[in-house]
């Protein structure tokens, strides 16, 4: 992992590490981040630790809107990190692809 010169984001390497429709966990500047590759090819990133009981969010099942934690089925918006099932929100990160097909994670402002 290195800091991306152009964007100031963190470079996590090739997007192929994350299968389509699934998530994988990464360490980004000390944070545990779950990166998801949606079926439309776009990326999303949330805190990798479920706010409910610490479940592995990267192991969750997802669609275009939400990811569902495998432990107790709490659902979180992939865009806002907010839960539709009453759990606390997850931190969101900005995930994108650079020109060489690498995952770039940027911390939200603040």
């Amino acid at each position: 992992m290195s800091t991306h010169a152009a964007t100031g984001g963190h470079l996590l390497g090739p997007v192929d590490q994350v299968p389509v429709g699934e998530g994988r966990a990464f360490v980004v500047d000390g944070d545990q981040v779950a990166v998801f590759r949606l079926r439309d090819g776009s990326l999303r990133a949330l805190s990798a630790v479920c706010s409910h009981r610490g479940g592995p969010i990267a192991d969750g099942t997802l669609d275009r809107q939400e990811v569902i934690c495998p432990l107790h089925q709490h659902a979180f918006s992939l865009d806002s990190g907010c839960s539709s099932t009453g759990a606390g929100p997850l931190r969101t990160y900005h995930a994108s692809l650079d020109d060489s097909g690498n995952i770039v994670i940027a911390f939200p402002p603040g």
């Binding site: 299968p19 389509v20 429709g21 699934e22 479940g55 592995p56 192991d59 099942t61 495998p70 432990l71």
Partner: peptide
């Protein structure tokens, strides 16, 4: 067989526990 359609248990062929 699209693996993202499976629950994590069926992706890794084991039963997930409370600590992951």
């Amino acid at each position: 067989d699209e693996r993202d359609a499976r629950f994590v248990n069926d992706r890794v062929h084991a039963n997930i526990q409370r600590d992951g």
